Computed example of a mutant assay.
Amino acid sequence: MNVTLNAEQRLYVIPCGDGYTCLGFDNARSHADQIAARLQRPDLAFATSDHGSLDGYAKYQAAIAAWGRSQLTLQTYFDPGTDPKAARALEICRRDGCKVRLVQGDTATGRCWLDEHDVVGRIGRSGGMMKVPLLIEAGADGGGTAILTNCLLRLIDWESGRDLYRHPVYRTPDLTIRKDRDKTDRPWQVLHDGTVVACFADIGKAGGYLAFMCGEIVEPRVFQ
């Protein structure tokens, strides 16, 4: 495989079908180091010289292959840096099949991303060597979206609204609603920290959006 380096953007550039995919230097190291620790294989961990090198990419591939040959491949694989409490909560939800709401964002600042798509559903798991958690929306035929488990700020039970997991630094987004009288089609604006993030035709939809982004159990179709 003709993998190349993009040093400026700190990426491995990998041929994929008729195009390319990318893997960050830091991401490759984090996964290889995590697998090395879990398998107790220090030979798979990155040396200083491996970071950002083709030797590092080869070591990353070797770590993935070693994981696939081990019994740990039967377990769910979580992103490096995932809070163990978040991993346990996701596994319980996968086992029980409960409907949940994900709130993802920056776990250093607690600021959420205000995602409205691919955040409500049930927890599943992918196939292959690296069985990662998936968010499976209602009506999906078994497929789902991979969850960035190391970016999980809240995991909310959809039926009760109860937190199943809450990151220690999570903070409720500072959202406000205002009406822009110069706008005739969608005058109701929702602002996040003073910046407009969404506009709606009526205040009801704006209120539904604000409540959803603050973690309330509101069907997205109310405002989408």
Rank of each mutant, 00 (worst) to 15 (best):
N2L: 10
N2P: 11
N2C: 08
V3C: 02
L5S: 10
E8M: 01
E8C: 12
R10C: 09
R10M: 08
R10P: 04
G17V: 04
G17W: 02
Y20A: 15
T21S: 11
C22S: 08
G24I: 13
F25Q: 05
D26I: 12
D33S: 06
Q34W: 05
I35N: 06
I35R: 02
A36S: 13
P42L: 13
L44S: 06
L44W: 08
L44C: 05
A45V: 10
A45F: 07
A47P: 01
S49M: 06
D50S: 03
D50W: 10
S53G: 04
L54M: 12
Y60R: 06
Q61K: 06
Q61G: 13
I64H: 00
G68D: 11
Q71R: 15
L72A: 11
T73W: 11
L74W: 11
Q75Y: 02
D79C: 06
D79N: 08
P80M: 04
P80N: 10
T82A: 04
D83M: 07
P84H: 11
A86H: 13
A89N: 02
I92W: 00
I92R: 00
D96Q: 15
V100F: 01
R101M: 13
R101K: 14
L102V: 00
V103Y: 02
G105V: 01
T109F: 07
G110Q: 08
R111F: 00
R111E: 14
W113T: 08
L114T: 04
E116K: 05
E116L: 07
V120G: 03
I123N: 07
I123S: 03
G124R: 07
G124H: 03
G124D: 11
R125M: 11
M129R: 14
M130Y: 07
K131T: 12
L135S: 03
A138D: 15
D141T: 15
L148S: 15
L152M: 08
L153S: 07
R154L: 04
I156C: 06
E159K: 14
E159P: 03
G161H: 02
G161M: 10
G161A: 11
R162F: 08
D163V: 10
L164H: 02
L164P: 01
Y165F: 14
R166I: 09
P173L: 12
L175Q: 02
I177W: 01
K183P: 01
T184C: 09
D185V: 14
W188T: 06
H192A: 15
G194H: 06
V196T: 15
A198T: 00
A201H: 13
I203K: 12
I203N: 12
G204V: 11
K205G: 10
K205P: 04
A206Q: 00
A206V: 13
G207F: 01
Y209K: 09
Y209I: 06
L210G: 04
M213A: 09
C214A: 09
C214D: 09
V218W: 06
V218L: 09
F223S: 07
